[in-house]
């Protein structure tokens, strides 16, 4: 018995919405920049799950190909983001986002 027949797609949409909200909560809740990055990853994964669910329910593999591209973008984002974070840490000796207020008006 496959999952397509037993579980309506609304459950997957709901699960993705909850995971995405947890990611948003992480971005708003924490001050450590690394945790904020991880929350962004969680949001990207919620979208990936949604794409895979729709791809399976509609028997269309294009959604899953799109997930590959999101993974590539996420990998690039993490590599550059963590490099930026390292240079921020080198200058301010912390990853607290509240120290990054030099551009604040």
């Amino acid at each position: 018995m496959s999952v397509v027949q037993t579980i309506p797609i609304n459950w997957y949409i709901l699960l993705s919405a909850v995971l995405f909200t947890i990611g948003v909560l992480g971005v708003l809740f924490r001050r450590n920049a690394i945790i904020i990055f991880m929350s962004v990853e969680l949001m990207l994964n919620a979208i990936n799950l949604l794409l895979v669910a729709f791809s399976t329910y509609l028997s269309d593999s294009k959604g899953q190909v799109f997930v590959f591209f999101i993974m590539a973008v996420a990998a690039a984002e993490v590599a550059v983001g963590l490099a930026i974070l390292m240079s921020v840490y080198r200058n301010s000796k912390s990853t607290d986002i509240n120290t990054l207020n030099k551009l604040k008006w």
């Binding site: 797609i9 949409i13 909200t21 791809s55 329910y57």
Partner: peptide
């Protein structure tokens, strides 16, 4: 509040009927 907005938007969504028995080779 964001989650409430999502759930509220989902409430009136029409369910996709799983008519076409999914092709198991898609993935």
């Amino acid at each position: 509040s964001l989650l409430i907005v999502f759930v509220g938007a989902l409430k009136n969504a029409t369910n996709i009927p799983a008519t076409n028995v999914a092709n198991p080779n898609v993935g």
